[in-house]
């Protein structure tokens, strides 16, 4: 079964669409204000990761015509899975609640923090806000987490559990995260794509923005790229590189590179989905040929790869 991207939602300070990932706004753009995008309703007590996710989820669901102008679902609630990837989503809640216990006692904690102390709060909150009743998954899987989330979203569709999956990556920027990751600024945003069986998207009259090719995983970036070559059978036109201090020499020499982490900030668990949306933007701007997305370098526990194809070639 072919799986395609039938919608994207991009919520970053420098980009509000897939195409803007290719042509971003100024580097000093102000941080995203969720209330300006989706109103204040329902944002109270939600951590920043969840608020950003709401914005990207709505944008992607609209782009894929899965919600109408009133916000109602246009498809069966159980036909949509939610797969979210984030490594640092609730680090702020954990550190703040821990600090309260240490400085005062557990009795001083806020019960409103309880749902946010569970790492799956983003995925389930998105499902609740948009009424998505399919399987609900939260991946916190390190550097490869975003590409892994795309793979699991596609698996849920291929296994016949759902027809489509909202796959979303988010990393918030705040003091707690900065301290935890050693000072780096994250993307402080969310990116979502709707994956759908090619047939279902066509039946709904929704154009495919990209198609998913082979997905690979393994120890080491070079080995992962070799597997991608086998899966694609074609030299890539663009290589979306992993977030790493330095890439080894001699990998895909001559192939143009796209370093989204360097452009938008530490993407971590959001990287793979950011790459997928950027590939859709690149295709929309006339890019052809396969795109290789890579996440996880030689310093990480594994490297994941995904081939993204221009929809006509799927």
């Amino acid at each position: 079964m072919n799986v395609v991207v039938s919608g994207t939602g991009v919520v970053l300070s420098r980009a509000a669409s897939a195409v803007e990932l290719i042509e971003p706004g100024p580097a000093d753009a102000p941080p995203v204000e969720p209330k300006d995008l989706i109103g204040r309703k329902g944002l109270r007590y939600k951590d920043r990761a969840t608020q950003l996710a709401y914005c990207a989820a709505r944008a992607a669901l609209r782009d894929a015509a899965l919600v109408d102008d009133d916000g109602g679902l246009t498809v069966a609630a159980g036909s949509v899975a939610v797969v979210v990837s984030s490594n640092y989503g609730n680090i702020d809640t954990i550190t703040r609640a821990m600090d309260t216990i240490t400085r005062e006692t557990a009795a001083a904690g806020s019960p409103m923090d309880l749902p946010n102390a569970s790492s799956n709060v983003v995925a389930s909150s998105v499902a609740i806000r948009f009424g998505l009743r399919g399987p609900n998954l939260m991946l916190c899987n390190g550097a490869t987490s975003g590409l892994d989330a795309l793979r699991w979203g596609a698996n849920l569709i291929r296994a016949g559990r759902v027809t489509r999956a909202l796959v979303l990556g988010v990393e918030p920027d705040n003091e707690a995260v900065r301290a935890f990751v050693g000072g780096a600024r994250t993307v402080d945003g969310a990116v979502a794509v709707v994956l759908e069986s090619e047939e279902a998207a066509a039946d709904r009259g929704v154009p495919a923005l990209a198609a998913l090719g082979g997905a690979v995983r393994g120890a080491g970036l070079a080995a992962s790229l070799a597997k991608l070559d086998d899966a694609a059978g074609e030299r890539p036109a663009l290589w979306q590189v992993p977030e790493a201090d330095a890439l080894p020499e001699g990998l895909l020499d001559g192939v143009p590179r796209q370093d989204l982490g360097a452009r938008f900030g530490l993407a971590s668990g959001a990287l793979g989905i950011l790459q997928c949306a950027a590939a859709a933007g690149w295709f929309a701007r006339g890019g052809a040929g396969p795109v290789y997305a890579s996440a996880g370098g030689d310093a990480d526990d594994a490297s994941a790869g995904l081939v993204l194809l221009r929809p006509a070639a799927a």
Binding site: S118, S119, N136, M138, C140, G142, D301, A302
Partner: peptide, 20 residues
């Protein structure tokens, strides 16, 4: 996530931590 330790302990390279 658990992948880093499992790579070290078991040479595992296809690990997935689901926070569900």
């Amino acid at each position: 996530h658990f992948g880093t330790a499992l790579r070290e302990a078991c040479n595992a390279d296809d690990t997935h931590t689901f926070s569900n």
